[in-house]
């Protein structure tokens, strides 16, 4: 049987663009089917941040004076935005690992030997990851609400805060794709957690940087994760935290600029790495 004929092959830029989008959605659907068939994925990926936040809120938090109103005061309002930001920060692993797996298992080879749009391999992945991250945030909001967290900001500010979180996650998709293509196999991709852990934790996620030793505090304050965590605390109108660093006075601007900088660096790197697959 013949399914193809050359009349189907329209090589115009418009047709290519149309197929790039169509193929991208096909890949997104595959990923969504994954999440539907394996809802436990969320438990595995969110389990760690949730356990960590519970430990901080109920174990260490009681000793921490974040707002200057006494140990343990306002800690839930401080830690929950931190949890959201940290989950987005760890999210690059959720991109890097499947990319490494797709490469290792020959999935990317199969895709690239097919007439589909090559860019859809990664744009589909990225779109699916943003959908995935949105579901992650909805689950975390549910948990935060149960624990008693509330946003004090307006609806627009609250939605804006979640927009900033996804903005960070988007930038980290390019990092994830780059690293996923860079590592040799999934075993090495798993080891990327060694990178994710300090990136997520040496930040203002669970403790204000001014409580840390000077040099570490500076690193933590300038961490992109801290920028987003600080910005969303501001938008949620969490009780103000004593700030010790210049950047902490400009968190919203930083939360917009940091992901932009990351994207500007890593998007071309990821594209180059992807094209290098054919070298």
């Amino acid at each position: 049987m013949t399914v193809i004929d050359d009349s189907m092959l329209d090589d115009s830029p418009a047709s290519r663009a149309k197929w790039a989008i169509a193929d991208s959605w096909t890949v997104v659907w595959q990923e969504i089917k994954h999440l539907i068939r394996q809802p436990s994925t969320f438990a595995w990926q969110l389990g760690f941040p949730i356990v960590v936040v519970l430990m901080f809120v109920y174990v260490f938090g009681s000793a921490m004076d974040v707002s200057g109103r006494g140990p343990g005061e306002d800690y839930l309002d401080y830690a929950m935005p931190g949890l959201f930001a940290m989950t987005m920060a760890f999210g690059f692993m959720n991109t890097a690992f499947p990319v490494a797996l797709a490469k290792e298992k020959g999935f990317i080879d199969r895709f690239l030997s097919m007439p589909m749009s090559p860019s859809a391999v990664v744009t589909g992945r990225g779109t699916a990851d943003i959908i995935h991250a949105t579901v992650d945030l909805l689950i975390l909001i549910g948990i935060a609400l149960v624990l008693g967290w509330r946003s004090g900001g307006s609806l627009a500010a609250t939605v804006g805060a979640f927009g900033l979180l996804l903005w960070l996650r988007l930038a980290l998709i390019f990092v994830g794709i780059y690293l996923g293509l860079l590592v040799k196999n999934t075993e090495m991709a798993g080891n990327l957690f060694a990178l994710a852990f300090p990136f997520g934790m040496i930040s203002s996620v669970f403790a204000p940087p001014h409580l840390m030793p000077g040099w570490l505090g500076a690193i933590a304050a300038w961490n992109p994760v801290s920028a987003t965590a600080g910005a969303i605390r501001e938008l949620f109108e969490s009780p103000p935290v004593q700030s010790g660093y210049w950047i902490e006075e400009h968190t919203v601007t930083a939360a917009i600029l940091w992901p932009l900088v990351i994207s500007v660096v890593f998007l071309p790197l990821a594209v180059r790495r992807f094209q290098a697959l054919r070298k």
């Binding site: 399914v3 096909t26 089917k33 298992k105 199969r110 859809a120």
Partner: peptide, 29 residues
Amino acid sequence: RIGLVGQQTAVDDVITARDNLILFGRLFH
């Protein structure tokens, strides 16, 4: 005009066998 079967078995282990073939069919346009 070609089919490629690489050294690794490149099928999606999570979605069904039928969904695998539909997925690839769609990507073959």
